[in-house]
Computed example of a mutant assay.
Amino acid sequence: MAMLGEMKKGEKALIKSISGADRFVRRRLLDLGIAEGAEVCIKCVLPFGGPVMLESCGQCVGIRRREAFRIEVERV
């Protein structure tokens, strides 16, 4: 099991758990269709502790890096 924040640009993963993320982040991800079992691809990781940009279902989403380290994934 890995954390979303550990992944590098271009890697793909399946979301295993978003329960560790802040409730507002969880709600936002669920509203965008990103839930357990969804496949995501890391588009870029911005420098200096910036956000992680990920793509799922044809849309790009940016989340804070500290929140990305609370989301469990399984590399594909």
Rank of each mutant, 00 (worst) to 15 (best):
M1H: 15
M1V: 12
A2F: 08
M3A: 07
M3D: 08
L4N: 03
G5F: 00
G5T: 00
E6R: 12
E6L: 12
K8C: 11
K9G: 13
K9Y: 11
G10M: 03
E11K: 06
E11M: 15
K12N: 04
A13D: 00
L14P: 12
L14V: 13
L14M: 10
I15Y: 00
S17L: 10
I18N: 05
I18F: 04
I18P: 01
I18A: 10
S19Y: 15
S19R: 14
G20Q: 03
D22A: 08
D22Y: 04
D22L: 06
R23V: 08
R23I: 09
R26I: 15
R27C: 07
R27Q: 10
L29E: 01
L29W: 00
L30A: 15
L32R: 05
G33P: 05
G33C: 13
G33L: 07
I34T: 04
G37S: 11
G37W: 04
A38R: 08
E39Q: 03
C41K: 08
I42A: 10
K43C: 13
C44N: 12
C44D: 15
V45T: 09
V45Y: 05
V45H: 11
F48I: 12
G49R: 02
G50L: 06
G50M: 03
P51D: 12
V52M: 13
L54A: 06
L54T: 01
E55G: 14
E55L: 14
S56Q: 07
S56E: 11
C57R: 05
Q59W: 09
C60D: 07
C60T: 12
V61G: 06
V61E: 04
G62W: 04
G62V: 14
I63W: 00
I63E: 07
R64W: 09
R64H: 06
R64N: 10
R64T: 14
R64E: 09
R65W: 09
R66W: 11
A68D: 02
F69M: 09
F69Q: 15
R70A: 13
I71K: 02
V73F: 00
E74I: 10
R75D: 08
V76S: 15
V76P: 12
